[in-house]
Amino acid sequence: MQRPLRAAAAATLVGALLGLAQVAGAASIKDGLKIAFVPKQINNPYEVTADNGGMAAIKEFKGDGKVVGPSDAGASSQVQYINTLTTQRVNAIVVAANDPNALVPYLKRAMSNGIKVVTFDSDTAPAGREIFVNQANAESIGRGQIQLVAKLMGNEGEFAILSATPNATNQNTWIKWMKEELKKPEYAKMKLVKIAYGNDDDQQSFVETQGLLQAYPNLKAIVAPTSVGLAAAARYISSSPSKGKVDVTGLGTPNQMREFVKNGTVKAFQLWDPGQLGYLAAYAAANLASGAIAGKPGETFDAGKLGKRTIGKDGEVILGPPTTFDASNIDQFNF
């Protein structure tokens, strides 16, 4: 009889220790933290998904979350929201920056008032924040975009890039790595003819797509590393004579792109889960605001269902590698 009793006691002890560990993990985040998300633009479907992920995380750790931001993606359009949040003395601001430098003075003012600042999706200069939550390694995203479009084009022909805004940190970093990848000898027969900007506006991106096709009649592909631009380009090409002749790829959400994959306009595109990106950013902000971390390289923190995460060089935390979506797997995803 002693052995079963000992086993039961051991099981009880293990359960208790696990319970204590979970309580300790939860205890590292204070209750009632006020955390505000500031997206690039409030009505962007990608941003909405990311912000919803953040709000879900905040609910998990019993915080008070809200989303405020502009309807346009201009360089200085987020300033007034950051200033208001600073006046309101929220515990943390999580921002997807429209410009790497325009927000820095205002975010520094927020930090000087004790507010923790996390950037996600699109970074500021490091002086403007304590942690940057990145979708994936910027180099792998940029190089991956070229590798994908090259496969679609058969490594030959003219292509264009349809970007968001000229100052978007993430877009410009990815494009830099796209250009680096393009220098490899296997892409010698590919030519980047134009980088166009749709300013993360659906109609402008639609018109820019039309302009690219008119200006470059031999165009074989458009790469749009922005969800708004990708959907707009696909919509234009799906109802034009270019359908089946010009490949469209880039970064977008499965729900936005599903109809264009199904009708053959888009063969493949890439993205990470923006909801998980917002979720991770919220946990980073909460741990900062609770004093569990200071944003230093090598520190680790608990990120709920995403597990333990480590802060890297320059305060960067990486979500993970992007996924390639095509007709074979797109119905497995809903975001």
Rank of each mutant, 00 (worst) to 15 (best):
S238V: 03
T226R: 09
R143M: 15
A160L: 11
M153W: 07
I35K: 01
A75C: 13
T169G: 11
I195M: 15
W177P: 05
K189F: 07
V48A: 05
I115T: 10
F120W: 12
G278D: 01
L18W: 11
V133Q: 02
Q270I: 10
A268P: 06
A188Y: 06
K296L: 12
N255T: 15
K66S: 12
E181P: 15
P100F: 10
L219P: 01
K30Q: 07
P241Y: 06
G291S: 04
Q80G: 08
N334I: 07
F206R: 13
S238Y: 04
T209P: 05
V67E: 06
A294I: 04
P126Y: 10
A136H: 03
Y236G: 14
T173S: 12
F301Q: 06
P39S: 03
A10T: 10
I293N: 08
F269V: 03
G65E: 00
A27M: 03
F159E: 12
A97K: 09
N329L: 08
D200A: 11
A16S: 14
I146D: 15
K245A: 02
K108M: 12
D51K: 00
S239V: 09
A282E: 00
G295Y: 04
V133M: 02
K243S: 04
A282Q: 00
Y216K: 01
S290L: 00
K305H: 06
D326Q: 14
I141D: 12
A56F: 01
P274I: 02
S122W: 03
S328V: 08
T226M: 03
N83F: 03
K313H: 14
R258G: 04
D302K: 14
P322F: 13
L13H: 07
K183N: 15
L219T: 06
A75Y: 11
F335M: 01
G295S: 10
